[in-house]
Design a binder for these strands. Structure first.
Lengths: 395, 395
DNA sequence: ATGAAAGCGCTAACAC
DNA sequence: GTGTTAGCGCTTTCAT
């Protein structure tokens, strides 16, 4: 019970209790107003004179009053919390690639959430609902959900909005965002071919995630189309050593490629090291591109052309989509059938979370990538440029 | 209102409402018992016949009943949530070292928390209380808090237990855990000297965090003691390229060291590469040790001796200390003065969180590190061994 | 413009 | 053994 309640009820002697947290009633009493006024003043609701408002705020400040999150949540049905779930988290160690991407993405997501008054909590995907039972989430962002992900399905079933980063294989989500991986790969291959490459190799992964799969497929399709024999090495992406070895193997082949695209962050340095071992000059003998969010590649010798997936943009978009779904605004305002429409309970609980679109095709969105062209992929003009978005169908 | 409440009150026509989440009253009604029985059955409290218990559980399951975290928290005053705050998170990109350490530590912390019925939420340290206002935390783990960290101070002031990973410089915490960095460095230096090193160099960082500071000081002290001139290069640890350059510089000196200890994860490979450039054989011409949690160093050529900070152990310890403080058990059960002692409210709110020890010296704990000896630091017997804990005062 | 009162969904006394 | 009851601290009608 709050100190105020204890005093009001008159029960119990005047124990010098250890600093109990001040409650809204304490503030009301100290400010000489009612708790309603305190609530309104602090939340910017109601029509109060600025004077009252500021006085209440001041008293609250002085008393170190912190509203109880639990009480507010219970009352309003909204926690102001959204989850960020990393599927790979807590299982295998991150690959550096995964991590650099995740760090950027999470940072952007956090500030996007904050801007809209939400806090973002990072939750491990492990342990099905042990965790989820303790937190009241208004919605969740899922990074790269597995096919038929049971956790996602459960959340969705509970009527919680779920937005995924990465096109979901086979689980129900409210919306998803992904890069256009296929286009990105084609853009790179075209770029390399334009720079004079005749045999473009690929350093890819052995795992079956969407990114690896789509990218590799795009590469194979391109090879088929231009009549080049595929030249690739696949390795377990989570093992940095395997990456170095694979890079070496790729350049050791009798039909050695004259250009290579590496799908993972460390591939750039690995390929550079391997090229050095074989006495290959970059870019004269070998053109190099890799996918990375790291800017170390701006200062390698030579600087390496990289593909950025723009995780900041993804993080921001994902969070905004999620909050739109939670609040039933934006793209989710007009979608018929699965909001309050028809039940006519306009006076019901405030802004009840609209269940996601049952059985409908989720809102999907492809985000552009950015090719940062540096010396490693240019035979001629060694200027640093940023490519314009790729126009499809130019091959 | 819950569906059950709507039915009981008899108000409102039989709207075919959209699947509202089942409440405890719905379960009680469906099972033909009271809500108390439901609560007790689901929480394993009370003395109910197993029959009732299982029936209730079954009905709850069938209805897809999920207890409301907010309501439970409001009622019990406990959320079952503990925060894990990474100071560096959300600001600068992690260094690889920081990250490998963090990933391991977080994994261990998560499962330790889970074992004791808590969930762990990772929160960015940014934005003082915007975030914290939304979550009801029972306590927080802080990784490497800055001196006079305002966030930690605020949490502490609120009476929330705070346990830090890394000895806190100048902020009040309930308890802390850290490695014995000084001893670890001395152990390594002794080990290298024993292997025949005469001029041991150090690759260190330019930042002022406790780890870097303590380690460097220990190195300098050791040099003074044995009469060796210090040989070190410091670089900004968050920049991998700078690390490679610093490694190169260290080996390029006219007074080139014959052994090097690198404080950060990538130093091992950087030093190895630099050694190769200068035609130095490891371990014949140069002994190498670095601090790392990565097992890639088991399979480099040659394998490199590493110091592990044992982040799993740290994570587990930190969480268990925190939960002990929250529940007022373990090391925190006997501490006089700052628990319920004296106020005699035995029947008060269940296990009220004891405020941390105001003005007392926080519980501190030094955890051992582990030196994993591999070929890079051995002139003779190239066997892989694990050292025993260092016995101080053997120099 | 302000306050009184009704709960949000749950748990823990305490009746029965 | 099981049910009744009183709130946890807050927001939100609805009176005044």
């Amino acid at each position: 019970m709050t100190a105020a309640a204890a005093n009001q009820s008159g029960r119990g002697p005047t124990h010098t209790r250890r600093m109990e947290r001040a409650g809204i009633r304490d503030v009301a009493a100290a400010a000489g107003v009612s708790i309603t006024t305190v609530s309104d003043a602090l939340n910017g609701k109601g029509r109060l004179p600025d004077e009252t408002r500021s006085k209440v705020r001041e008293v609250a400040e002085r008393l170190g009053y912190r509203p109880s999150a639990a009480a507010r949540t219970l009352r309003t049905g909204r926690s102001g919390l959204i989850g960020l779930t990393v599927t790979t988290y807590g299982q295998e160690p991150f690959t550096f690639t995964e991590f650099a991407y995740f760090a950027e993405m999470a940072r952007a997501a956090t500030s996007a959430a904050l801007t809209r008054g939400y806090a973002l909590v990072v939750l491990p995907a492990t342990s099905r609902h042990d965790v989820w039972g303790n937190v009241a989430l208004d919605g969740t962002v899922v990074i790269d959900p597995a096919d038929h992900d049971p956790m996602v399905a459960e959340l969705y079933r509970q009527g919680l909005p779920v937005v995924s980063d990465g096109k979901p294989g086979n689980c129900p989500v409210t919306a998803w965002v992904d890069n256009d991986h296929a286009s990105a790969v084609l853009e790179i291959l075209d770029h390399l071919a334009e720079a004079g490459a005749r045999r473009i190799g690929l350093l890819t992964g052995t795992s079956t995630d969407t990114y690896t799969r789509l990218s590799t497929e795009a590469y194979l399709g391109w090879c088929r189309r231009v009549g080049q024999e595929p030249l690739y090495e696949a390795y377990p992406a989570h093992d940095p050593c395997a990456g170095a070895v694979a890079a070496d193997r790729l350049l050791a082949r009798p039909d050695r490629p004259d250009a290579v695209y590496g799908l993972f962050d460390p591939n750039g340095t690995d390929l550079l090291a391997a090229a050095r071992r074989y006495g290959l000059r970059v870019p004269e003998d070998l053109l190099l591109v890799c996918c990375s969010e790291s800017d170390v590649y701006a200062s390698t010798e030579p600087p390496i052309t990289t593909l950025s997936l723009k995780p900041q943009r993804i993080g921001t978009t994902v969070v905004n989509l999620l909050i739109d779904a939670i609040e039933g605004v934006g793209a989710f305002a007009g979608r018929g059938g699965h909001r309050l429409g028809g039940s006519g309970l306009s006076g019901g609980r405030a802004a009840y979370v609209p269940p996601p679109a049952y059985g409908e095709i989720p809102e999907g969105q492809l985000m552009p990538t950015e090719l940062i062209i540096r010396r490693s992929s240019q035979r001629r003009s060694p200027r640093t440029t940023v490519s314009a978005p790729r126009v499809p169908g130019e091959g």
